[in-house]
Every structure is written in C-alpha cells, then in structure tokens.
Simulated assay, not measured.
Amino acid sequence: MTAPISAFIRAKNEERMIGDVIRAAQQVVSEVVVVDSGSTDKTIEIAEELGARVVRSPWLGGGKQKRLGEDACTHDWLLDLDADEIVAPELASEIGVLFANGAPERSVYQMMMATAPPVGAVWRDFNLVDRRKLYDRRVVRAPDHANYDQFDVPSGVSVGKLRAPLLHYSFRDLAHLEDKFTRNSAGRARNTKLKPLWLLQLRVVFGKPFYFLNQYVRRGLWRAGWYGFAVANIAAHGRWMKDALMVEIHLRNRQGRED
C-alpha cells in the first residue's frame, strides 16, 4: 500500500536506470514526478509508460531544478531521488510503516545512501552518506541555488532517522566515476567563494595524499579491496582538481587586472 508521498526525480538521458528507479519508488509513494532537462533517449517514454508525470524544463542548476520538482508534486510530503537511486524493499517497508497512521511525527527524515558498485556487493557498512531525502515541503525546501541542492534544517526542527539504506548506483564504471568528479569539481570551483591563493597553492602541492586517506581510511574504502583503492584515488583527484581550478581562477583574475 502506498503512502501520500510524491517522489521527484531529476533526469536527462537516464534510460539506463529510470525504469528501475520509478518502479522501486512506486513500492511506497503514490506519485512520481520526473523533471526532465532535455533527454534525447527513451527516458521520457519509459517514465510515462510507468505512470510517472514528466515535467520538461531546461537545466537551471541543482537546487533550482529540485525546486521545480517540489512545486510540481501533488503531495506535501516528498521523496527526493536522483535517477540512479533505488528504494530497496526494506526502505519502502520502513517508510510505509512510518505513514501507516497518518503523517509522521517529524517533518524531515534522513537515510543512509549505500553505494552499489558496478562489481561486487553493495557497500552497506562503509562509505555511507547520510541524506535528508524524505521531508514535508511546508517546513523545508531545496535551496534556490544553481550548484548546491542540499537544504539546511531550520532551527528547532527535529530530524528522524530511517534504518534501511537507499541504494546508490552512482557510477557505471571507473571512467564514468572520474568524469562525474571532474564535472562536479568544475562546478564547485566556479560557485564556491575563493579561498586565499596561498592556501589553495598549498593544497595543490600537499593536499592530494590527505584527500586519498580521507576516502581510503576514514570512509573505509580499504574494505573494498583494489576496487576501493581505485575509487579512493579518483575521489581524491576530483577533490584536488577543485583546488587546482580555483588557483586557475585566481590567476585568470590577476591576468585580467594586469591587462
């Protein structure tokens, strides 16, 4: 039995997984809205065949695109999904129980995202990321920002925790992962307030080993063997690339002033 929840999904050329994402969400939500930003593959066709409502819009940026999804939903309770995130049966069941007797006690619920790598088992015990994905839009909204799309919880609002994870099929292979980190680094470098040049230069020279250790040791990627080693290296390089791109911005600005 579904709950009075609308799931919204941002998409562009996501035919690889959009059907699985929609079907998984439909285990518990009563509406799925797909915000499509110009797909040329079968994304829209698949979504509509499965009963999802498709809203077409040019890409406005992460938070702004989420706002379109929020506004298009029928219900006030929302489940925010990306086009590579699968609601596992145990998570659907837990959400269903939460709404069994009406609206839940809290206005925001967070869940852990567990990476489902292209090879091997889901990383359920390490490299977990907590995300506030289930919420009442009357209380919180996605930020009206082109790059950032995670909302801040208002003061005094208590956040509930769901035990079951959301499965994140975040990359098809290592080349895809590297491409994602490169694109994200470029966007964040452009939209982040510039730190002092000397600090960024220090990070460019010395930072990469620390970024690697953060991924490999602190986030537990060592538990994924050689594959985790490769992922940690790619993630560290992506973080380092943001620093390098911000140094480049500083140098371009200096050159512009001199010209």
Rank of each mutant, 00 (worst) to 15 (best):
L166V: 05
R138F: 03
N147G: 05
W198R: 14
R141Q: 10
N214L: 11
L199A: 10
Y169W: 12
F210L: 14
R137I: 05
K180S: 12
K195C: 07
G160K: 02
L162D: 06
G207Q: 02
V204C: 13
S185R: 06
G238F: 02
N147P: 00
V231F: 04
V231K: 04
R137D: 04
R203N: 13
K195V: 11
R252F: 11
K193T: 15
S155Q: 13
D149W: 10
R203D: 13
V153K: 01
L213G: 10
N233M: 13
G160D: 06
V247K: 06
I234K: 02
V231W: 01
P165R: 02
L202R: 15
L245N: 08
L167G: 07
G238A: 08
S158K: 15
Y135C: 07
L162S: 08
E178G: 13
R163L: 13
L174E: 07
D136M: 04
L202P: 00
Q215N: 13
D149Q: 09
D152S: 14
N233W: 14
F229E: 08
L202H: 09
L166A: 04
R203S: 12
R219P: 02
V153M: 02
A189D: 04
R137M: 02
D152T: 11
S158L: 14
K242A: 12
P196Y: 03
R218T: 10
A186G: 09
V217N: 12
F212A: 04
V205T: 15
N191V: 00
A224G: 09
D144P: 01
